[in-house]
């Protein structure tokens, strides 16, 4: 009886699978143009995003470009053991975490606040102009941004030090002060990304039902009440999704920017996992250690995945919203 039941279940499962495949084929036949247009994106994802992940296998090898991924000798977990034995790793990990936490804590709320206030601007042309200008820095390269920063903060001729001098102070070489590296990095991050992030929140605000505001007005709500009790709760899903994504990127600092801002004076605070890996793999005086660099990156990704899962679970528990 049980056997028959099992056979019946297997049969049903097989039929279900067949049904899904048939439905899929039917759907392709019906909407083949849409599937065709999906193809380049899918191929791009497979070839350039998912495919290269396989290359991470070199973390378990002593990789040589000539021997290739499949020909290089296996060293299993040697590179990972090396990470934990490396006396310098704690320093770069701490620097990375501090920079990442600062980025999340300081940078994350700015576009939310900005979009909340921008949404309150009555004149549409003012709103769209401000939005467009705030978005522009996103397209400026890190090299140009850091050059602007150097010019503004130059101890000899920079506008900031000229101001300090005119107020009777001594010029400060901001780019050479370890204490200034993190604030400057975070300021550049805000400058470059807040307009871009704000678009997501503004788009979410567009979908809020206007009747909610009308009802609140009838109940005597002022503008602060409407921001705090209608707008903010209505965009909370977007905020949480963005937060989860930010936490996922917690170890992903902007390497280009750091390398451009990096010098011996700020080394104590500016040397992070990525710069260390970069030195090992691409600035090596000897034979580049791609495998060790990859091992460090894998470890970094695993920690980021754990963090994302944790935040996702917390978001589900406390805000009933989750990314996956």
């Amino acid at each position: 009886m049980a056997g028959r039941k099992k056979a019946g279940t297997a049969l049903a499962s097989g039929q279900r699978k067949k049904g899904i495949i048939q439905d899929f084929i039917k759907s392709i036949k019906k909407d083949w143009i849409l599937y065709l247009l999906l193809l380049p994106g899918l191929l791009s994802l497979i070839l350039f995003k998912i495919g290269p992940v396989g290359g991470m296998i070199i973390a378990f090898e002593k990789f040589s470009a000539f021997q290739g991924v499949f020909g290089s000798p296996w060293v299993w977990f040697d590179n990972f053991k090396k990470i934990f034995a490396d006396p310098y790793i704690p320093k770069v990990v701490i620097n990375t975490i501090i920079l990442a936490i600062l980025t999340v804590v300081v940078v994350f709320p700015i576009p939310i606040i900005f979009s909340l206030f921008l949404n309150e601007v009555r004149l549409k042309w003012v709103r769209s102009t401000v939005q467009s200008f705030s978005f522009l820095p996103y397209f400026i390269s890190a090299a140009v941004m850091v050059s602007i920063l150097y010019t503004i903060l130059s101890p000899g001729s920079g506008i900031v030090n000229n101001l300090i001098r005119s107020l009777g102070g001594e010029p400060i070489n901001f780019m050479a002060k370890p204490g200034w590296f993190r604030p400057l990095y975070v300021i550049l991050e805000i400058w470059q990304t807040f307009g871009y992030s704000a678009i997501i929140y503004i788009a979410a605000m567009m979908n809020i039902d206007p009747s909610l505001y009308e009802a609140a007005e009838v109940d005597g709500a002022n503008r602060w009440d409407k921001i705090l009790k209608i707008t903010l709760p209505c965009i909370s899903t977007s905020v949480i999704v963005m937060l989860i994504i930010s936490v996922g990127n917690i170890f992903t600092v902007n390497l280009d920017r750091i390398l451009l801002m990096y010098n011996s004076s700020v080394y104590d605070t500016a040397d992070v996992i990525q710069t260390y890996v970069y030195r090992m793999a691409f600035e090596s005086k000897g034979f580049p250690d791609y495998s060790y660099g990859t091992a460090v990156n894998i470890l970094k990704s695993v920690i980021a995945f754990v963090l994302v899962s944790f935040v996702n679970k917390m978001a589900d528990k406390f805000a009933e919203t989750r990314l996956f």
């Binding site: 490396d86 080394y267 260390y276 600035e283 005086k285 000897g286 034979f287 250690d289």
Partner: peptide, 27 residues
């Protein structure tokens, strides 16, 4: 030896220069 040296130098050389610069500039 090259492999071990290049990894060690990648750490020590920059740290050495950074440390001395910090002493000189008063950081």
């Amino acid at each position: 030896q090259t492999e071990e040296l290049s990894n060690l130098v990648a750490t020590v050389f920059d740290a050495e220069i950074a440390g001395i610069v910090s002493f000189v500039t008063g950081n």
